[in-house]
């Protein structure tokens, strides 16, 4: 598995040197959410009602924003061909890339989420559940996103295309993620929603890398 670690380490190093990618994603996430009070008015009750949904939708969009580069750079400079020829099975390569992607985009979103929760008046009961739900949900976004990013490699207008392909597939994540936060805020148990989110993650963990690997194999033919 040394190849797995090498690839994660390389992607983190690249993200670190190229610098601002993670910051841009978080910036978009925060800025987008901050627009809502301007749009619906600063009424605390209204904001509290929609906070969970707004944060989740913005997390979804922010994750989409970073997806088109997931394989694109490696595809353009020939790295992807060599990765496909390395002894590590392609599915694990995809998993390594997803892990690196999550560490550089999903994790910063989770860290920024409580800040947005404060700005949007989310009742304090929902904070822990929000972070927990995002911890379960954002890896699914990376996994599903990898499928879309691999499928649209070499396509025209790949960036927009990825969102079009992936967003409908993320509807369940959005539903369970928001439902968990709403339940916690309303004083109901959030457990069932979180468990469903966990089940989605467990299903996506093997299936998405498998589909992504198939797509990548066609892309490097």
């Amino acid at each position: 598995m040394s190849g797995f670690r090498m690839l994660v380490a390389r992607d983190l190093k690249l993200a670190g040197r190229q610098g601002s990618d993670a910051l841009l994603v978080v910036g978009f996430f925060v800025l987008g959410a901050v627009l809502f009070p301007f749009a619906v008015g600063p009424d605390a009750a209204v904001l509290a009602r929609i906070a969970g949904g707004v944060i989740w939708v913005m997390a979804l969009l922010a994750a989409m924003l970073s997806l088109d580069r997931l394989f694109q750079a490696d595809y353009e400079d020939g790295t992807l061909e060599l990765l496909a020829l390395s002894p590590l099975p392609l599915g694990f390569l995809v998993l390594a890339k997803c892990l690196a992607h999550w560490l550089t985009t999903g994790l910063p979103l989770i860290i920024a989420a409580p800040l947005l929760a404060i700005l949007l008046n989310l009742p304090a009961d929902g904070f822990a559940t929000l972070v927990l739900a995002m911890a379960l949900g954002t890896p699914i976004l990376s996994l599903l996103g990898a499928v879309g990013a691999a499928l649209s490699l070499g396509a025209r207008r790949a960036g927009v295309l990825v969102s079009l392909l992936v967003l409908p597939l993320t509807v369940p994540v959005l539903i369970f993620g928001v439902a968990a936060v709403d339940a916690a805020v309303g004083g109901y148990p959030a457990g069932p929603h979180l468990m469903l989110l966990g089940a989605l993650f467990l299903a996506a963990l093997p299936l998405c890398p498998w589909a992504t690997a198939a797509a990548l194999r066609h892309a490097v033919e």
């Binding site: 499928v147 499928l151 369940p172 539903i175 589909a211 066609h218």
Partner: peptide, 28 residues
């Protein structure tokens, strides 16, 4: 040909997802 292959994989991924989406929407 690339379009056809990519589309085929997407169709299968979508097909697996349809029941999940259906379930989640009912839940919602």
């Amino acid at each position: 040909q690339r379009g056809a292959r990519a589309g085929a994989i997407l169709a299968l991924v979508g097909w697996v997802n349809v029941p999940i989406i259906k379930f989640s929407v009912d839940w919602w």
